[in-house]
Design a protein around this nucleic acid. Structure first.
Length: 136
DNA sequence: CCCTGATTCGC
DNA sequence: GCGAATCAGG
């Protein structure tokens, strides 16, 4: 695109250029060729084509769903993944499929993370009160 | 390694 | 919305 006469921000996808792009694409011209023709990169072409919803080509390519840039996918902490310093709060029923642990950062000296320490503590308080009553 | 297109993601 | 980077198939 252009900013008021001159400074190029990116390619100006005018209707003409889009038409050329579409036509060349429908003729089966390679993206790199189209890019050369319109003076843009092949990535720009394929990106635009994809955005325009034009028919796909070289079909049987199936990309990995995984991406390494972001969203590393929250790992499920199974027993073998559990390490010291990880919250060992059980999730699910032990011995059944899908059983795993919280896996969060455990509080120093505790087997659980902050959240699960609190939950454990709530129970402890009740028990401690009863125990304390009896003890005293 | 070259080509291709496909998808994600920072801008 | 754009396209470089990255990825996957040929």
């Amino acid at each position: 695109m252009k900013n008021r006469e001159g400074t190029v921000m990116s390619v100006d996808w005018t209707p003409e250029r889009i038409e050329i792009l579409t036509q060349l694409w429908n003729e089966g011209i390679a993206t790199s060729e189209i890019g050369r023709r319109l003076d843009v990169t092949k990535n720009a072409v394929v990106g635009k084509v994809h955005r325009l919803g034009l028919p796909k080509r070289q079909s049987p390519i199936q990309r990995k769903p995984a991406k390494k840039k972001k969203a590393p996918e929250p790992e499920v902490i199974t027993m073998d993944k559990l390490r010291p310093g990880m919250c060992a709060w059980p999730i699910g029923d032990p011995g059944t499929p899908g059983f795993h642990f919280c896996g969060g950062k455990a509080v120093e000296g505790k087997p659980y993370c902050d959240t699960h320490c609190e939950q454990a503590y709530v129970r402890s308080v009740k028990d401690d009160r009863n125990n304390a009553k009896r003890a005293s």
